Computed example of a mutant assay.
Amino acid sequence: METSESQHHYVGFWARFGASIIDTILVIMITSPLLYSIYGNEYWETDQFIIGLPDFLISWVLPLVATVLFWVYKSATPGKMVLKAKVVDAETGNAPSTQQSIIRYVGYYISSLPIGLGFIWVAFDAKKQGWHDKIAGTVVVSQ
């Protein structure tokens, strides 16, 4: 569906921050018991960045796949759903494509590198886009 820019109500920094807190808590609630069942207390006591393949799959691949699937099929992660916000293609207003979603997820790392400046950018941008949104061609709007 084609949308005009005037129909969008862009979601700002604090609402998006709240959504990310919800999503982070959910990821921890899912991944921590899985990691504990495999590694026990060793997981939290080690200095290693990645302990093994299960750690990599649970800590890195699972959140990526889940987030991309939520964006593609629901246009929102659970945190955004709670706040009645959704990620859409900036041009069409449609759900983001799989490619856009993957680029947006990778863009999270780019946004976080310079002390989170890419996320803070949302507070100052006219369309409330973080760097990850700009890279992927997405915006976050109210439903």
Rank of each mutant, 00 (worst) to 15 (best):
G18L: 13
T31K: 10
S101A: 13
D89Y: 08
A85L: 09
E91C: 09
K80R: 07
S97L: 03
W71R: 07
Q143L: 07
V61S: 01
G116K: 13
L57P: 02
L57V: 04
Y39P: 01
A126G: 11
A15E: 07
S37E: 10
K127D: 03
S59F: 08
I22Y: 02
I51G: 00
W131A: 02
P78E: 10
I30Q: 01
I120Y: 15
S101Q: 03
H8K: 07
V61H: 08
F70P: 06
G79V: 04
Y43R: 00
S142V: 07
S75F: 03
G79E: 03
I103R: 10
A136Y: 14
W44F: 09
E42T: 07
P33T: 00
I38P: 06
F124N: 05
S32V: 11
W131I: 10
D23F: 05
W71N: 01
V140F: 03
F70D: 14
P96D: 14
T98F: 09
V141Y: 12
V27M: 04
T46Q: 00
I110V: 08
G137I: 05
G130L: 03
A123C: 03
V140W: 11
K80W: 12
F124M: 04
Q143W: 05
G130V: 15
I51L: 10
T77Y: 07
N41W: 06
S6K: 11
I110H: 08
A90G: 10
W14Q: 02
I135S: 02
R16H: 06
A136Q: 09
V106G: 03
L113M: 05
Q143R: 04
V106H: 13
I50S: 00
P96W: 04
T98N: 09
Y43Q: 00
G12C: 06
T98I: 07
V61N: 01
V65Q: 01
G18Y: 06
A66W: 05
S142L: 15
L69Q: 04
S142K: 13
M1C: 13
T98R: 12
Y10R: 08
S32C: 11
K127Q: 13
D23S: 10
S4G: 04
P63H: 08
D47H: 08
V27F: 06
E42V: 09
N41E: 11
D89K: 14
A90W: 11
I51V: 11
D23A: 05
G137P: 13
A136L: 14
E2C: 07
G93M: 08
V27K: 08
K86G: 03
G12K: 09
N94P: 04
I21A: 10
T67K: 08
T77P: 04
I21R: 06
E42Q: 03
P33F: 01
G18D: 14
E2A: 02
I103C: 07
V27C: 06
T24G: 15
